[in-house]
Simulated scan of single mutants.
Amino acid sequence: MFFVNEPMARMNFFYGLAMPFEIVPCCYYGTDNEYWFGRLQYAAFSCNWPDQDRTFKRKMMLFVERSVKRSTAVAGGMLRVNVDTFFATLKMAYSLFTIIIRMR
């Protein structure tokens, strides 16, 4: 960065740093939510459900069956919002960058 004399090249450097810092928190919290929602049925069964009445057990069974389904955040209906998607995007961007550099 310090050896670049062109202002546009400096802007590209800062843009290259700013975009990952903007995207990483969203992807991290998407993965974190996915993890904790995956453990929701175990948390439900750790309550004192054997001593509860029949309606509670019925509602608990429906809740646990509903929580077994995997839930993920999806951006635009196409991309999952998690750390794996972030790293896949970085790998694709780097591959595209190397292709463009080799074409020069």
Results as ranks from 00 to 15, higher is better:
Arg39Thr: 05
Glu22Tyr: 13
Met19Arg: 10
Val64Asn: 02
Met19Asn: 07
Phe21Asp: 07
Gln41His: 12
Phe97Pro: 00
Met61Phe: 11
Val4Cys: 13
Phe45Trp: 13
Leu96Val: 10
Met103Thr: 14
Gly38Leu: 00
Phe2Trp: 07
Cys26Ser: 12
Val74Phe: 04
Gly38Tyr: 01
Thr31Trp: 02
Gln52Thr: 14
Val24Ile: 15
Lys91Pro: 02
Thr55Gly: 05
Phe2Gln: 12
Glu22Thr: 13
Asp53Pro: 01
Cys26His: 11
Asp53Glu: 05
Val83Gly: 01
Asn48Pro: 03
Lys91Met: 09
Met8Ile: 15
Gln41Ile: 04
Asp84Ser: 11
Phe2His: 10
Leu17Gln: 07
Ile100Ser: 12
Met11Val: 14
Tyr35Gln: 12
Ala18Glu: 08
Gly30Trp: 00
Val68Phe: 07
Glu34Lys: 04
Tyr42Ala: 11
Ala18Phe: 12
Thr85Arg: 02
Lys59Arg: 13
Tyr15His: 11
Asn48Met: 08
Phe2Tyr: 08
Val81Ser: 00
Phe56Tyr: 13
Pro20Asp: 06
Phe21Lys: 08
Phe37Arg: 03
Leu62Arg: 09
Arg70Tyr: 03
Met1Thr: 11
Met19His: 06
Trp36Val: 08
Thr85Asp: 02
Met92Cys: 10
Ser95Trp: 03
Ala9Thr: 05
Tyr94Asp: 15
Phe86Ser: 02
Phe2Arg: 10
Phe14Glu: 09
Ala93Trp: 08
Met103Phe: 14
Asp32Leu: 08
